[in-house]
Simulated assay, not measured.
Amino acid sequence: MEIIFSKKLSETDVSHRLAIPSEKLDKIAPLSLGDKVSVAVIDDTEHQWSFLLSTRNEGKYLKPVISGNEWDRFVSERHLRKDDNITFYRETIENNEVRFRIRIELTGVPFFLFGAPMRPAA
């Protein structure tokens, strides 16, 4: 498995869209300014998500982001917040098929109360 990028999540990453480092875009999908593509991503619970990868139409530089309903649902269901860490991977499986994985690392020491993840008060 190849690490494409790791990052600490910003407030915008968890409330609107996940910013992808521009130089890593081609390792996911070769997009042009304004393009969109659905990317299947498997999380660390083996659940598959269909994230919308696009480049924002602002300025002359590609600004790749993951956004949309699936990203919002992922953030909500995985209880992500600012300063949590994610790592995005690319792996090649049989028949040279490429698939993507995402791993999250919650900040603090999460614990569970009645099956729901909880975090200590900040």
Rank of each mutant, 00 (worst) to 15 (best):
F111V: 10
S67Q: 05
D43G: 08
N57I: 00
F74I: 13
G115S: 04
K27M: 13
R119S: 06
R81N: 07
H47S: 11
V75T: 09
P64S: 07
S50Y: 14
R90P: 02
L62E: 02
K7F: 11
P120K: 15
L31Q: 04
I3N: 02
I93C: 03
E11W: 03
T55Q: 00
K63G: 02
L18E: 03
I66D: 01
E2Q: 14
E11R: 07
F111M: 07
A19F: 07
K8H: 01
N96D: 13
R78E: 10
K27F: 04
K36C: 06
F100N: 05
S50G: 03
E70V: 01
I42V: 10
V41C: 07
D72I: 03
H47Y: 15
M118H: 14
M118Q: 13
P30T: 15
N85S: 14
S76F: 06
I102Y: 00
K7M: 09
A121P: 06
D83G: 00
I66G: 01
R73H: 01
H79K: 12
L33V: 09
E105L: 09
I93D: 09
I20E: 09
I28V: 14
P110C: 04
L25G: 04
Y61E: 10
K8F: 05
E77V: 08
N57K: 13
S54Q: 14
Y89V: 07
L52A: 11
N69V: 11
A116C: 06
H79E: 05
T12C: 02
V75S: 11
L52Q: 15
T45G: 12
K27G: 06
V37F: 08
Q48G: 02
N96Y: 08
F100I: 08
H79W: 04
R101V: 04
E105A: 13
D26I: 01
F5Q: 08
D83R: 08
E97M: 01
K8Q: 15
D43M: 07
V98P: 01
